[in-house]
Amino acid sequence: MPQQHIVKSYEDELALLDTKIARMGGLAEHNLGQAFDALQRRDPRQAEMAIVADQAIDVLEKDIEEQVIGMIARRQPLADDLRHVMAALKITSDLERIGDLAKNIAKRASAIAELSHPKPVISGLGRMVELALHQLKTVLDAYAERDAERAIEVWRNDQRIDAMYNSLFRELLTYMMEDPRSIGLSTHLLFGAKNLERVGDHTTNIAEIVHYLVRGEPISDDRPKGDDTSSLLVGSND
């Protein structure tokens, strides 16, 4: 651990920031898990709980934002302290987005609770959620422990989420082509998958922020991009 600040209240404020980020990250993880659970079990009541729970994340985001602005005004942080407060400010906004995406999945869970779900897609989504949650947890640990290596690991692993999204995308297109009546359901599931892919992207952002926080430099090499669905056309054979 680095040496403590001479002014103890400053040290306390920096520590408090980390506590809040950890709490916010924990909530985001929990809500995402709960939203998918509601989808999988077709349980509108649980979906509603996941939707309401997002408010706590929004409140924390505001709180962290205010604290950081206050610290910049009053403490004028420099060097690693500056990177610390800026990292917290940026991470909080990625976590808030992750919360929104979880909430969106919960809303879709509610909308399609009456319909019967294609099992292979749901289990595919399940694997995606599992990996997204693992990535999120790892990056939050990397933040708490100031571990740049683990941040890089998370950053690289995102292509696995992208690959899963690609395959679900193709699978859902096939369902829709085979049975146009499934288009409504499949579209909700497709957006659900896209949301998870976006969760992966926000997690990757956090990994980049953690790396900058620890090393003072951005991650240098190019990340392999896995999502090629934006250039995919219905009816193409590849």
Binding site: Q3, I6, V7, A79, G216
Partner: peptide, 19 residues
């Protein structure tokens, strides 16, 4: 120097950590 000092002594000084 003020965002990413190379030396720990510099960092400790500018962030107010000098004992």
């Amino acid at each position: 120097i003020f965002t990413n000092p190379r030396d720990k002594r510099t960092q400790d000084y500018i962030t107010g950590r000098f004992g």
